[in-house]
Design a protein around this nucleic acid. Structure first.
Lengths: 233, 233
DNA sequence: TGTGACAAATAAGTCCGACTTTTTGTTTCC
DNA sequence: GGAAACAAAAAGTCGGACTTATTTGTCACA
């Protein structure tokens, strides 16, 4: 899944990226390209390409006569899907999951409102289909099948919003949903109220009721926040 | 500002990045590393590093025996600050500005609500200071000074939210605000109502009133949407 | 005629070694 | 003690030789 097996530099990234995002090299640490190349048993050229990519993500900065210095987290491109994947795969996973859930709670309601205005007939149909799929798999510990439809539902909402920035978060949201099912406490069937909300969102979008779609989606995301104990006192 | 003058590969990126994001090479176009290297008068090594960076942004994909193929916009890392800057600098600017304004309208109210809960005393002070600066420069065509305080205000809100994903959008929001002042119709003094709203947001955050801070910020962003004629019919 | 295997062409991928450039730290000299 | 010259270190650049994967085209065989 996360293997970008593409070439040697990809393999280096798959090792170095997770290591840096996991904080194994504290900010300010200095790496040498030559040493890294030796350590990974690749040529300098390959190592340089890997460093360039890490640099474009602002995970490191390469300076003459100094070396490759690890950047503080505040500099990272935290929206880079690759960086998100690395963080979700490492020690930073819980923190990253919380950040992303808050992000979701901001984006998805607005996206749903926009979807109610811009969704095509086909997208409305997809949405209904997903919601029905969720209902059908909401009982009897069919968590995997439920998850598939849940991910698809939210992806359609984000895509149908017509906003490219929102649409690009489809993968991230899917990752969060999958994470909740696979790694968090999720032994029971999903909350029936949440399932109902999804169906209602699909209806609201179909009915072109932007306000209602937004409000209902907000209820869904509030639920997601509460699961992680992120809420107002 | 956008010059990453760092090294030859940076210069190549400064030319190729804008070209691709501007749609000069239609999706599916195939480039050859060797030809590009010749065209830019750099070695293959340098060209390869540049291609790797573009590949990590999903602007292109490099495949053996095929070449470097330009990816469709749907694949781009649209949250990469570099990509955003390239698009804002090119023909896609109006579209990008609209996308980002919608994104703002989703993020900032939630960020303001969180800021009301998590802002430090120092951040509250900064916020008030920015708001006062906006008031002081809201009349008499002092647009530049006004803009500086406006950008600072929103950056503090996003930072004070305590969410790293929100904080990272400070640059983007600043870019949008600057774009509005510099390139859009902005000959008159800013709307007094908007200025008042900023002051009130600062007050709400200071008073730890999350709901009010969120609501007031929503009014601000709705105003920004209306300026671009993005609104419900 | 269609299909399968094989061969050729192609462009990226990899490695290497020499050289250049910039930056930093030291040393020397006033 | 400060400034200027010097030395070292590490990234940056180059070019060429070679490897590998993938596509495309060809040819034989059914």
């Amino acid at each position: 899944m996360s293997t970008r097996g593409r070439g040697l530099h990809g393999h280096v990234l798959d090792t170095l990226g997770p290591a840096i995002t996991a904080g194994e090299y504290p900010p300010g640490s200095v790496l040498r390209t030559d040493e890294l190349a030796q350590h990974f048993e690749v040529s300098r050229s390959v190592m340089r390409e890997a460093v360039r990519v890490l640099e474009s993500m602002h995970l490191v900065e390469s300076r003459r006569r100094v070396g490759v210095t690890v950047q503080p987290k505040s500099a990272w491109n935290v929206y880079d899907p690759q960086v998100i994947r690395w963080r979700l795969a490492g020690a930073d996973r819980p923190h990253q999951l919380r950040s992303l859930t808050v992000l979701r709670s901001a984006i998805e309601p607005v996206a749903a409102g926009l979807a109610a205005r811009h969704a095509t007939a086909e997208q409305c149909a997809e949405l209904t289909e997903c919601a029905l799929g969720m209902v059908a798999n909401s009982r009897g510990h069919q968590l995997e099948a439920y998850l598939v439809h849940d991910m698809a539902f939210h992806r359609v909402i984000l895509t149908a919003s017509g906003n490219e920035m929102f649409a690009r978060l489809g993968d991230v949201v899917a990752e969060v949903l999958a994470g909740r099912t696979h790694h968090e406490v999720m032994f029971e069937d999903p909350d029936p109220a949440a399932v109902t909300l999804h169906v209602q969102v699909a209806e609201a979008v179909r009915a072109r009721d932007a306000t209602r779609a937004e409000q209902l989606t907000r209820e869904i995301t509030v639920g997601a926040l509460q699961e992680l104990d992120i809420l107002a006192p």
